[in-house]
Design a protein around this nucleic acid. Structure first.
Lengths: 326, 326
DNA sequence: TATCATGGTGAAAGCGATTTCAACGACGGG
DNA sequence: CCCGTCGTTGAAATCGCTTTCACCATGATA
């Protein structure tokens, strides 16, 4: 492996000069030229490990996600990757498989290990999370949840759910049911349910608490919850779901129990999943700019890192949403 | 930041002793105990950067994928992540967005940069790829393509497509069309098409070359190709697709042009996409153990790294498949 | 008694960059 | 003619760890 010293010798300069050439310090034109040629000749590339040791910066960003094989998360990840690549960073990906403790574990690992910053695609934020984030040595940006005092990029789930509820209330003839997710997930659990309820109430429709179920983000959980709802109460004629994936399950349950084609008109979701949209022609749902949130969060993080270290840019950013098919 | 020397001083030993303690070298019981306490007391964690510089190993594995937001890839990635985490490695993810040149770029980047090994989820393998892989300083395992002389974990697309073709030939009344992908992708493009054709031929059905189209992995491309096929030839009554995603598009086209409910019985795909399965009840498709291929490839790679450096374990592994809904 | 493994140990030499620091030549102004 | 700048330069100190190496007991072996 050719190292800096070799290049320096070949070019007839000191390795300090080579380093300065590489990092843009004082260097005369002719030496710069000689160094440039020596580098090309030897095919030298600098050891990022030595550089990291010396400078303390690794150009690595840790990304923690709850589940990699989900459309929303992978779109976010795509956005993160775009920006990272463009700005000369690399992505260290950690998948927690929806286990909150592994989230903490990685937060820890990343701190003592080699990342310059962290993007956390968050589901539930416990006090322990808050503490871990607080005491983190490198900057963090959260995606998906709005947490006081932390840099976040998120969508207004309450507002979106409110609008969806209000819009749907009018067009339903029978009873409305709801399949949510754990309320520990403030955004997707608590906010969406409460927003939806409030939206219905705004036009004097009440969501019967006995018609609320809780799924686990999976298609199958949506399916099971819907089957149960539909068989418990024959008057249920619409099921709103906290995610498009669960809505797909509910749709299937409708088709099975009430006849093919019923589901499409009788479920709603969140996330505007491309597959679901194409296969059904579109159910009522909320479109979020997932890719954008990855992009924005990463830009925010890198600005804080690259710019003056003076906290510049780490703030809270609320992205817009769009009601679909209502 | 507390460093090894601090721990050593506190424990009254040399830093060499601390290092040996950490790495399992000669150390007497009482010193080991003192070191252990000193570490706990100070909360010391060792700098992976210094360690990496000294040992030349980073415990990082580079993973190159063509597209992160696709079900198959994200399932593979999930499998890779599982094994990596369990065995004390971390994942450096690179997304090429289906650009073959960025694949090469990352291959390059990873070599000179800090990874101990590479997993390449491959689409097309050009000669340039072959050369890059050949001359790679760290071990590589390919997923999804079978390349001579390289460690690979792959599925037998030809065989699977053959079986699918043979099974479907009997049940179709009219003409069969095919929507494939670029033949530069040997597995998903060339092998699947040829296998399918051969399967049909095995029961004396011929795939009319004029009824073959090429999509680009996306749902929309499948949709467009199918619409075109269906309007060009009214006798087309079945469209086999090289991926489930494109099949979803074709399904939609059928429903639009031939009436709702038609598509479900008239398209086939590859990959057994969960969404599609749930929403349609299942079209003919091939189930691949994507997660398994991630797991196997990673184990293979790590075995080669952790075990004796003697090439141990880097081999070719063909995984099985399963016909669904035929 | 002389010789040898054997288990333990610390000093010190790197790993390959970056970054201070002192110094130098040239040049313009006072 | 002296001095302060300015642009440039290389020697050398670090960054925090691993690993060689020489060396020391200690007990077993010849």
């Amino acid at each position: 492996m050719v190292k800096m010293k070799d290049v320096a010798e070949l070019a007839g300069v000191s390795s300090a000069a080579v380093s300065r050439y590489l990092n843009g310090g004082y260097i005369s034109a002719d030496k710069a030229e000689r160094i440039k040629q020596a580098i090309e000749l030897t095919g030298y590339v600098r050891s990022s490990q030595a550089r990291a040791l010396r400078t303390g910066s690794t150009k690595l960003i840790g990304v923690i996600v709850p589940k990699i094989n989900s459309e929303s998360v992978s779109r976010i990840t795509a956005g993160i990757g775009q920006v990272l690549g463009r700005r000369g960073y690399q992505m260290l990906l950690a998948n927690t498989d929806n286990a909150a403790d592994r989230e903490l574990e990685y937060l820890d690992l990343f701190q003592n290990h080699p990342v310059d910053g962290i993007v956390l695609v968050a589901t539930m934020i416990t006090d322990e999370h808050r503490r871990a984030i607080e005491s983190c040595r490198v900057p963090i940006v959260l995606i998906g949840q709005n947490v006081e005092g932390t840099a976040c990029v998120y969508h207004d789930d309450y507002e979106a759910a409110f609008e969806l509820g209000r819009a749907l209330a009018g067009r339903v003839d029978g009873k409305i049911a709801y399949i949510g997710v754990t309320e520990e997930d403030r955004a997707a659990g608590y906010d969406r349910r409460r927003g939806f309820e409030a939206g219905l109430r705004a036009v004097d429709v009440v969501l019967d608490p006995s018609l609320i179920r809780q799924g686990s983000f999976t298609l199958d959980s949506g399916y099971r919850a819907a089957r149960e709802l539909l068989s418990v109460d024959p008057d249920v004629s619409f099921i709103a779901c906290a995610t498009d994936t669960m809505a797909a399950g509910a749709l299937r349950a409708f088709d099975e129990l009430r006849g093919v084609g019923e589901g499409v008109r009788r479920v709603s979701g969140f996330g505007d999943n491309a597959f679901l949209r194409a296969l059904t022609g579109g159910i009522p749902t909320v479109h979020y700019g997932y890719l954008t949130s990855g992009v924005e969060a990463t830009n925010m993080l890198l600005n804080a890192l690259d710019g003056e270290e003076g906290e510049s840019g780490l703030k809270t950013l609320k992205l817009g949403h769009q009601l679909m098919n209502v």
